[in-house]
Design a protein around this nucleic acid. Structure first.
Lengths: 231, 231
DNA sequence: AACCGAATATGATATATGTCATAAATACAG
DNA sequence: CTGTATTTATGACATATATCATATTCGGTT
């Protein structure tokens, strides 16, 4: 059972988007007044691709997967999102539609703030606007990198890279819980689930990792890095 | 021989970035004072991936290719850029590096404006900041779409989509000059140049297009659309 | 404990696509 | 005009990767 510690006010929230530090007390109060919290159980959908993007959504706790629904029902997982993350997607500023879906992996708490309020603060606070641009840019930059990974590396390189992503960016440890199924790992690296299984097996045989369906331990980070870079 | 009509002032420039319409006369003057024009011959590099991104670069005339230099010297052409386009890339706001390269296809005129000036105007003019966010977002959105295209469609679909891109977004005609070589078309659709040649041949046999090495005419747009969508 | 559906694992096979070799066409410099 | 380099075109072959079939393990439920 989860006890979602409700946030009393944005002003004292330690789990909000880093860019909120650029706001004045009055601006924070404005945001706070237009704030709605919600929590999600594992596998519940937080954002649905294509739906109108009226709210900026901030993850307060938990882990979620960000994915695009592609052709013939095939998904592409772009990344995982954790607390302090703004979820919205570039569609917001173009056609007011979410361009990707987000689903909870663990229990997730999220904060919804209407985009009109966000836009208002953007236009009154240049520092916040700059922070917003940085956030957008950082995500775009990572996507540029991901395109290269997906198009130019072979399966082994893509999977190695995914494992390093979990280790470095999400769990900050060589040993971590594997929160995605083999199927989802495939959706993340653009390959069939059978190929994921096979290559994980190969990595185990070569003593690069130690894996169970729900856990991974990186034994030889050097080798994994080489595989990831050499494609 | 080209006669590059020099721009006398930003205020009366008809070939600049649309977002400049949000600037006041004083702001335009500031921009105008910190402006440098340059022109490029076909195949010359306008932006080099990885180099420090000190300037925002605006295309005034001509056509250029935007591409990432990937692993093992393999390029990925992201899109073509024409006049009124801001070239900079998200790296500018993250690590001050260009995350892609840009090379002239035709003769190109460009305007260089130091990013300090742009940032100054962003922070003093909310409308301009919003326009900037829109530009960034639009590019990110198209990249999201491109990832799906490249990862989930087969060769025929990707090539069909590229041909439609030229027709719809660049030349606005069913008949257009093919400004890229077969090799470059491959870099754009992530396939070998031989495959490009073969599939263009198939499209010709099926009377979908009529092609020479330097020109394309779309004969059956419907079929091309279906191929592009069905992957 | 026994069952059931789902996820994982493994092998056989099919297919898309790249690579290599070579010929034909084209652009181009002298 | 002529020879040379580059691009385009085509065929034979190699390989990465998906698909399909089937076994096995696992998590949860009665």
């Amino acid at each position: 059972m989860y006890t979602d510690n409700k946030i009393t006010s944005c002003e004292f929230c330690s789990r909000c988007w880093a860019n909120f530090k650029n706001l004045s007390s009055e601006e924070l109060e404005l945001v706070n007044k237009n704030r709605y919290e919600a929590s999600f159980k594992p596998s519940e959908i937080i954002i649905k691709q294509g739906s109108p993007s009226s709210n900026a959504i901030f993850l307060l706790s938990g882990l979620a997967k960000v994915y695009m629904e592609g052709y013939a029902g095939k998904n592409l997982i772009l990344n995982l999102a954790e607390s302090k993350t703004l979820l919205a997607g570039p569609g917001v500023h173009v056609n007011s539609r979410y361009c990707y879906s987000v689903a909870a992996i663990t229990h997730v708490q999220a904060c919804f703030i209407n985009f009109d309020v966000i836009r208002q603060v953007i236009s009154s606070n240049p520092g916040f606007a700059a922070g917003f641009i940085e956030d957008l840019s950082g995500k775009a930059l990572r996507l540029h990198q991901k395109v290269l990974n997906l198009t130019q590396k072979k399966m082994h390189g893509r999977l190695a890279e995914a494992l390093l992503y979990f280790s470095d960016s999400i769990f900050h440890s060589d040993e971590f819980e594997m929160v995605l199924s083999r199927q989802e790992l495939g959706e993340m690296t653009n390959m069939a689930k059978e190929s994921v299984v096979r290559i994980i097996g190969e990595f185990e045989n070569e003593n690069i990792i130690q894996a169970t369906p729900r856990s991974v331990k990186i034994l030889d980070r050097e080798k994994l890095l080489v595989i990831s870079e050499k494609g």
